[in-house]
């Protein structure tokens, strides 16, 4: 996470009671370009600590003069979404990471099936802009709760016509995964973003119907869950750090001035994998396999036990 950049909030829109959209422009110079599916980390100063949450860029990748993100207010939030919803207004300045893409369109697909659950629509807003510009074949399946998480549904209905398949759970409409996967031509790739339950269901169903993993691309909501407080010790520097219950290990390391390379901050990309030498680990990532977990952990989501200090190879 090298260079940070400063942006100014130039527009804020409340899209639904829980979804707020923010538009940023460069405080000086130009914003870097981005590809569809990219995200940025937004730094939020909360008291003495800084939270970093990753949000998908939902604007048209052809226009990088502005970045747009949409943030869902999370009930069990550690304060990031609440901060953006309640404290950030037009004219404010924020720090962002440069864009990274862990969820790109597949270059060889001849048909794209996009499946969004709730706020998981955000990366697909950029996808759709790009796919429409290319004249590519695609369809969007968008499951949401009406008047709560249905941000962009009206805009999408207008832009996409019958390529949009909307499922409003408040009206009892359900996304039928088996039906969606049936009858897709050979060049099809599937992309999903939404709650873990949706992603798990989709992957399981896809596998059973003979879709190899290489056709199924997904992005989970990346946010560390709180846990118990624990201690870490850094083997190389001898530094000792307390990780409080509501901070991730990665955040605690950053607060102590220890930089660990990272991208998604949600246990999926593998970028922050760090070796540990001793101690109990509660692995919460979706990346490392059992063999790797024997000596590595992902500090963005995983935590140590409270009984003894965790010794990291840092």
């Amino acid at each position: 996470m090298s260079a940070l950049m400063e942006v100014r909030v130039c527009a804020v829109r409340q899209l639904t009671p829980v979804v707020r959209e923010f538009t940023f422009e460069a405080a000086e110079g130009q914003l870097p370009g981005f590809s569809s599916g990219s995200h940025v980390q937004v730094l939020m100063p909360l008291g003495e600590r800084t939270l970093r949450n990753a949000y998908s860029l939902l604007g048209d990748p052809a226009d990088s003069t502005r970045y747009r993100i949409a943030v869902r207010l999370q009930d069990a939030s550690r304060g990031g979404s609440r901060y953006l919803h309640e404290r950030v207004a037009v004219g404010d300045r924020l720090q962002l990471s440069r864009p990274h893409n862990l969820f790109p369109l597949h270059s060889q697909a001849s048909h794209h099936v996009l499946v969004a659950g709730g706020i998981g629509i955000t990366p697909f807003m950029a996808y759709i802009a790009e796919l429409q510009a290319r004249g590519a074949s695609f369809e969007l399946h968008y499951a949401f709760r009406g008047r709560l998480t249905d941000a962009y549904v009206d805009e999408l209905a207008e832009r996409l016509g019958d390529r949009l398949h909307a499922y409003d759970s408040s009206a009892g409409q359900r996304l039928d995964l088996a039906a969606l996967l049936a009858g897709q031509p050979l060049g099809t790739h599937l992309y999903a973003c939404g709650p873990q339950r949706l992603l798990d269901g989709l992957r399981e169903q896809a596998r059973a119907l003979g879709w190899p993993d290489g056709r199924v691309h997904w992005e989970a909501f990346a946010a560390p869950e709180p846990g118990l407080a624990f201690r870490v010790e850094l083997a190389r520097s001898g530094q000792r750090i307390e990780v409080p219950a509501d901070l991730s290990l990665l955040e605690a390391l950053e607060a102590a001035g220890v930089e660990v390379p990272n991208l998604c901050r949600g246990g999926v990309c593998g970028q922050c994998a760090t070796r540990y030498l001793a101690g109990a680990v509660e692995h919460r990532d979706h990346y490392l396999d059992e063999a790797q977990r024997a000596d590595s952990l992902m500090p963005c989501v995983s935590r140590g036990g409270c009984a003894s200090a965790l010794l990291l190879d840092l």
Binding site: L181, A182, G183, Q184, P185, L186, T188, L209, G210, W211, R215
Partner: peptide, 8 residues
């Protein structure tokens, strides 16, 4: 294959 579906 032109007529085939994913799952083939």
């Amino acid at each position: 294959l032109e007529q085939a579906e994913v799952g083939t």
